[in-house]
């Protein structure tokens, strides 16, 4: 399971944990997270994330 970091605020999306509060189930691969997903901390889009 991979991790992706928000370049703006540092929030870490962990594929194993997902983001259930925002409708992303645990285990969801980053490629499968919806394109309009926003960082739950700062609101940045998927294109601001980098692989850890």
């Amino acid at each position: 399971m991979k991790k992706y970091v928000c370049d703006i605020c540092g929030y870490v999306y962990d594929e194993a944990l997902g983001d259930p509060d925002n409708g992303v189930a645990p285990g969801t691969k980053w490629e499968d997270v919806p394109e309009d997903y926003l960082c739950p901390v700062c609101g940045a889009g998927k294109d601001s994330f980098s692989k850890e």
């Binding site: 703006i8 605020c9 901390v41 700062c42 609101g43 940045a44």
Partner: peptide, 9 residues
């Protein structure tokens, strides 16, 4: 109006 990251979330 929300202003996330100016300069905190």
């Amino acid at each position: 109006y929300m202003a996330p990251m100016v300069h905190w979330p």
